[in-house]
Deep mutational scan, measured.
Amino acid sequence: PTIVLKVSPEELKALEKAGVEIEKIEKNEDGELYITLTPEALKKAGFE
């Protein structure tokens, strides 16, 4: 199962800087950012 999270541009930068593997980055028509994370990326980021 993949996880989709709504993030701010600042959060996205912080995640990328931390080396979190982001599978997909999407922006909706309201300009909101959503990222898709794999279970492996979540484990690496410390989420179980």
Rank of each mutant, 00 (worst) to 15 (best):
P1M: 13
P1H: 11
P1K: 13
P1S: 11
P1I: 12
P1G: 13
T2K: 10
T2F: 14
T2I: 09
T2H: 14
T2Y: 11
T2E: 07
T2G: 09
T2D: 10
T2R: 10
T2V: 12
T2N: 15
I3K: 06
I3R: 10
I3W: 12
I3P: 02
I3F: 08
I3H: 11
I3G: 03
I3C: 15
I3E: 04
I3T: 09
I3M: 10
V4G: 04
V4E: 04
V4H: 07
V4P: 03
V4Y: 06
V4L: 08
V4R: 14
V4A: 06
V4S: 09
V4I: 11
V4W: 04
V4K: 13
L5K: 14
L5A: 06
L5E: 01
L5P: 00
L5F: 06
L5W: 07
K6E: 03
K6P: 03
K6F: 08
K6S: 06
K6Y: 07
K6T: 05
K6G: 05
K6C: 14
K6D: 01
K6W: 08
K6H: 12
V7E: 00
V7S: 02
V7H: 00
V7F: 02
V7I: 10
V7P: 01
V7G: 01
V7R: 00
V7W: 01
V7K: 01
S8R: 06
S8C: 11
S8W: 04
S8P: 01
S8H: 06
S8M: 07
S8A: 05
P9Y: 09
P9G: 09
P9V: 12
P9R: 09
P9H: 09
P9S: 11
P9D: 10
P9C: 11
P9N: 08
P9M: 08
P9F: 08
P9E: 11
E10G: 09
E10H: 09
E10T: 12
E10L: 14
E10Q: 12
E10A: 12
E10P: 04
E10D: 13
E10C: 15
E11C: 15
E11H: 13
E11A: 14
E11K: 13
E11S: 08
E11Q: 15
E11I: 14
E11P: 00
E11W: 15
E11G: 12
L12S: 01
L12R: 02
L12H: 03
L12K: 02
L12E: 00
L12D: 00
L12V: 05
L12A: 03
L12Q: 01
L12G: 01
L12T: 01
K13F: 10
K13Y: 10
K13V: 10
K13C: 14
K13Q: 09
K13T: 08
K13E: 13
A14D: 05
A14F: 15
A14M: 15
A14E: 14
A14T: 14
A14H: 13
A14W: 15
A14G: 09
A14Y: 15
L15V: 04
L15R: 00
L15N: 00
L15Y: 13
L15K: 00
L15I: 14
L15D: 00
E16W: 08
E16L: 09
E16R: 11
E16V: 12
E16Q: 12
E16F: 12
E16S: 09
E16D: 05
E16K: 11
E16M: 13
K17I: 12
K17F: 09
K17Y: 09
K17A: 12
K17N: 08
K17D: 10
K17G: 08
K17R: 11
K17Q: 11
A18Q: 14
A18E: 05
A18W: 14
A18D: 05
A18F: 10
A18K: 15
A18N: 11
A18I: 13
G19Y: 04
G19A: 05
G19E: 06
G19T: 02
G19S: 06
G19H: 08
G19L: 05
V20A: 08
V20G: 01
V20R: 01
V20P: 00
V20I: 14
V20L: 10
E21R: 06
E21I: 06
E21F: 07
E21Y: 06
E21P: 09
E21G: 06
I22A: 02
I22T: 02
I22P: 04
I22F: 09
I22N: 01
I22M: 07
I22Q: 00
I22D: 00
I22L: 06
E23S: 09
E23Y: 07
E23C: 11
E23Q: 09
E23V: 11
E23I: 11
E23T: 08
E23F: 12
E23P: 03
E23K: 07
K24L: 08
K24E: 06
K24N: 11
K24M: 10
K24Y: 07
K24H: 10
K24F: 09
K24T: 06
K24W: 10
I25M: 07
I25A: 04
I25E: 02
I25P: 01
I25N: 01
I25Y: 06
I25R: 04
I25L: 08
I25H: 03
I25T: 06
I25C: 10
E26A: 08
E26N: 07
E26T: 11
E26Y: 13
E26Q: 09
E26R: 07
E26F: 12
E26C: 15
E26K: 04
K27W: 13
K27N: 07
K27G: 08
K27P: 07
K27V: 13
K27C: 14
K27Q: 11
K27D: 05
N28K: 11
N28A: 13
N28W: 07
N28T: 11
N28C: 14
N28D: 12
N28Y: 07
N28L: 11
N28I: 05
N28G: 10
N28S: 08
N28V: 05
E29W: 10
E29T: 10
E29P: 09
E29D: 12
E29I: 09
E29V: 12
E29Y: 11
E29G: 13
E29H: 10
D30Q: 12
D30K: 11
D30Y: 13
D30H: 12
D30V: 12
D30C: 15
D30R: 13
D30S: 11
D30M: 12
D30W: 15
G31V: 01
G31I: 01
G31Q: 03
G31L: 04
G31N: 08
G31P: 01
G31H: 03
G31W: 02
G31K: 04
G31M: 03
E32I: 07
E32Y: 11
E32D: 13
E32V: 07
E32R: 05
E32W: 13
E32C: 11
E32M: 11
E32Q: 08
L33Y: 14
L33F: 12
L33C: 09
L33N: 03
L33A: 06
L33K: 01
L33D: 02
L33M: 09
L33Q: 04
L33R: 01
Y34T: 10
Y34F: 12
Y34I: 14
Y34H: 06
Y34D: 02
Y34G: 01
Y34P: 00
Y34Q: 08
Y34M: 09
Y34S: 07
Y34R: 11
Y34N: 06
I35S: 00
I35A: 04
I35K: 00
I35H: 00
I35Q: 00
I35F: 01
I35C: 04
I35W: 00
I35D: 00
I35N: 00
I35Y: 00
I35P: 00
T36D: 02
T36K: 04
T36R: 04
T36N: 03
T36W: 14
T36Y: 14
T36H: 13
T36Q: 06
T36S: 08
T36A: 04
L37K: 00
L37P: 00
L37H: 00
L37D: 00
L37R: 00
L37A: 09
L37V: 14
L37F: 06
L37G: 01
L37Y: 02
T38W: 02
T38S: 05
T38V: 03
T38M: 04
T38Q: 04
T38P: 03
T38H: 03
T38E: 05
T38I: 03
P39S: 09
P39E: 15
P39T: 14
P39L: 15
P39C: 15
P39G: 11
P39D: 14
P39H: 15
P39K: 15
P39M: 15
E40W: 01
E40S: 05
E40P: 05
E40I: 04
E40R: 02
E40L: 03
E40H: 04
E40A: 07
A41R: 02
A41E: 15
A41V: 03
A41F: 04
A41H: 03
A41C: 04
A41D: 08
A41S: 07
A41Q: 14
A41P: 01
L42V: 14
L42K: 05
L42T: 07
L42D: 02
L42G: 07
L42P: 02
L42S: 07
L42M: 14
L42Y: 15
L42A: 15
L42E: 04
K43L: 13
K43N: 15
K43R: 14
K43T: 14
K43I: 12
K43W: 04
K43Q: 13
K43E: 15
K44E: 10
K44M: 02
K44S: 02
K44D: 15
K44V: 02
K44R: 02
K44T: 03
K44G: 04
A45M: 09
A45V: 05
A45F: 05
A45E: 03
A45G: 11
A45P: 06
A45N: 04
A45Y: 04
A45T: 03
G46Y: 03
G46L: 03
G46R: 04
G46D: 10
G46N: 03
G46K: 03
G46E: 05
G46H: 03
G46I: 05
G46A: 02
G46T: 01
G46S: 02
G46V: 02
G46Q: 04
F47C: 15
F47H: 14
F47I: 15
F47M: 15
F47T: 10
F47A: 10
F47G: 10
F47Y: 06
F47W: 07
F47V: 15
F47S: 08
F47P: 05
E48D: 11
E48Q: 03
E48R: 01
E48T: 02
E48Y: 01
E48C: 04
E48V: 03
E48P: 15
E48N: 02
E48A: 02
E48H: 02
